[in-house]
């Protein structure tokens, strides 16, 4: 049997061309946001041993909290944990407006999520991995950060607060 030319209705052909162009434009838009505006998804940062990450004195997460690395620039080491209770350590952070904070978050037990409301910080927290994104806080106010992945019975109460002072 001969291979025949495929019949495509002209309306449908135009629709397919339109669809393809639209999808290419969407891909272009996310590329601009990612590579032009620096709105990126997390990259592999560091691997840790979840069994010791919260206790080893050499691990920054044995003493989680905020460190000022240069004026207006902070590193926040945050531990998300389900054992012995569901919580972020530390639960509260205070920074002045205009600060840029790099969040380094890991878990000593199960998977968690980390989402700071009204910002682009939103990522998985996976035991053995360190998740990092950097966020600049210009508007004073309070920003809750909440756990967004099921981590056991107390998942729904797990949150903390960032206070941005004027």
């Amino acid at each position: 049997m001969n291979t025949r030319q495929m019949h495509i209705d002209p309306y449908e052909r135009n629709w397919m061309i339109f669809s393809a162009v639209m999808l290419v434009l969407f891909a272009a838009a996310v590329s601009v946001a990612a590579f032009g505006m620096g709105i990126e998804v997390p990259a592999p940062e560091q691997r840790v041993d979840p069994r010791t990450v919260a206790t080893d004195p050499n691990s920054p997460w044995s003493n989680p909290g905020l460190r000022e690395v240069s004026p207006g620039k902070y590193d926040a080491y945050i531990l998300a944990r389900a054992v012995p209770q569901w919580e972020f350590l530390p639960k509260e952070l205070t920074i002045p407006a205009g600060s840029s904070v790099s969040f380094y978050v890991t878990s000593p037990d199960v998977q968690h999520g980390f989402k700071i409301q009204n910002t682009n910080a939103n990522f998985m927290v996976i035991p053995g991995q360190v998740s990092k994104l950097t966020i600049r806080f210009d508007e004073p106010g309070t920003y809750d950060f909440i756990c967004t992945e099921y981590c056991g019975s107390g998942h729904g109460i797990m949150y903390g607060t960032i206070t941005v002072t004027p």
């Binding site: 505006m37 620096g38 709105i39 998804v41 910080a121 600049r136």
Partner: peptide
């Protein structure tokens, strides 16, 4: 997304 700014 764009309004919330960069993450790097």
């Amino acid at each position: 997304l764009v309004g919330r700014g960069g993450t790097l």
